[in-house]
Design a protein around this nucleic acid. Structure first.
Length: 405
DNA sequence: TTTGGCTACTACAG
DNA sequence: CTGTAGTAGCCAAA
């Protein structure tokens, strides 16, 4: 386990120098500090990288305009039809809405939320994340009857298929925007839309989620260990929020019915991300600024870059691994003073160090479901590979941040 | 009851 | 600093 360490490289002034000047062959193979001169350089570098990762205003404006137009249209249409999705609502999720999206606003996650009352969750394996859903009595929501399978289980496949059918028909009716529906990836909870933009494409993941206002299942009991970071009260408040279930197939299902649902904590993740300080005023205009989100963005970027370079070897890794490690790090280093804006380098190194230990131990517990390990031992080779790549980058001043692909 | 519009607020880019 | 997007809470119209 990591101890919070104080201090760090002598804090220099703000990294005002903006655009990352490529670190032209500085201290090859050197360690973090070497003399007073070297200590002054890294802050400028990571701040420079970060400034390149921030989303441009014009891009955001254009992208959000298109996405909102398309999503509003779809929700109207879905509600209007008698397809069983009458009371659907919208919830922005994922990195764009958590304000940690990097590089371009080209990926959006939208949850379409269906309120449901009184549902029974039955674990379908030992992860504690996947469930079969049945109704204790006839659902109050009669229209859900059409999505029950022969065992009386609520069928994720039937619901997702029905929703996709509506969406496929309806995207044709959206004026002035070119939208296509991607072929569904097996087992993925998302229906992916592609919106043609002037230059590039925006992908919008539409995720059907059931919202159930009932206590969280047993597997989450020891998760969300945020007491030392956000406090007991906040934990209790968060656990009073509803649970969400997304239509996600469990590949390890014993009898393949395809009708499994997976817990989703997107709403809680978003709440924590947007209220991430141990002190309430963290990052507010009159409060102290921290570098938590910056560290998260940097590791996301590092993984993205490495995945571009080693697609095959790193296919098992996704940004959720990074996000999960991030939340654990927030618990390990719970104080805002552990993440001072001026100490970005040091904080990022600590964060990376924790992530490396996870890889080495093949141990990254789901933040809300501790028994669910996101780094299976079967993927030990991948973990070792990623661990070596990150170590190399760490020891060489992150050359990959400067490389183009 | 549900909905959508209005307002006030925050985060963030520039 | 200003301007924009997202969000929550409130209220009135459908």
């Amino acid at each position: 386990g990591g101890e919070p360490r104080e201090g760090g490289p002598a804090a220099t002034g703000r990294g005002r120098a903006a655009k990352a000047a490529p670190a032209g062959g500085r201290r090859p193979g050197g360690s973090a500090e070497r003399g007073g001169e070297a200590a002054a350089v890294p802050p400028l570098r990571l701040r420079g990288v970060l400034s390149q990762l921030s989303l441009g205003r014009r891009d955001v404006s254009e992208a959000s305009g298109l996405v909102n137009q398309v999503v509003s249209h779809l929700i109207q249409a879905i509600r209007g039809r008698d397809g069983g999705f009458g009371s659907i609502g919208r919830l922005g999720a994922g990195s764009y809405y958590e304000r940690v999206k990097i590089s371009e606003p080209n990926e959006f996650d939208i949850m379409l939320v269906m309120p449901v009352t009184r549902i029974q969750l039955d674990e379908c394996d030992d992860t504690g994340a996947y469930y079969y859903l049945t109704f204790k009595r006839n659902p109050k929501e009669k229209y859900l009857n059409r999505f029950l399978d022969e065992d009386g289980k609520l069928s994720a496949i039937k619901m997702r298929t029905a929703l996709k059918k509506i969406i496929k028909e309806e995207v044709k009716n959206i004026k002035d925007v070119e939208v296509t529906v991607k072929r569904m990836k097996a087992g993925s909870p998302a229906i992916t839309l592609l919106i043609k933009k002037s230059s590039a494409e925006i992908s919008v993941d539409i995720i059907l989620a059931l919202e159930v206002q009932q206590s969280w299942p047993l597997s989450t009991q020891d998760g969300l260990n945020i007491e030392r970071w956000l406090g007991r009260k906040v934990r209790r408040e968060l656990r009073n929020k509803p649970i969400y279930l997304v239509a996600k197939q469990n590949k390890k299902e014993k009898v393949l019915t395809g009708n499994t649902w997976r817990l989703s904590f997107s709403h809680i993740e978003k709440a924590m991300m947007n209220n991430h300080g141990s002190i309430k005023t963290c990052c507010e205009t009159d409060g102290a600024k921290c570098c938590r989100k910056d560290c998260l963005k940097l590791l996301k970027y590092l993984l993205e870059k490495l995945k571009m370079k080693h697609a095959k070897e790193l296919e098992k890794f996704c940004s959720y691994h990074v996000k999960t490690a991030f939340f654990h790090s927030c618990v390990i280093w719970p104080n805002d003073t552990d993440w001072q804006y001026e100490n970005l380098e040091h904080c990022f190194q600590n964060f990376l160090g924790y992530f490396l230990r996870c890889l080495q131990d093949s141990q990254l517990p789901h933040f809300f479901i501790p028994q669910y390990n996101l780094l299976s031992l079967d993927d030990k080779a991948s973990s070792n590979f990623l661990s070596r790549q990150i170590n190399y980058q760490l020891n060489n001043g992150f050359p990959i941040f400067q490389q183009e692909y």
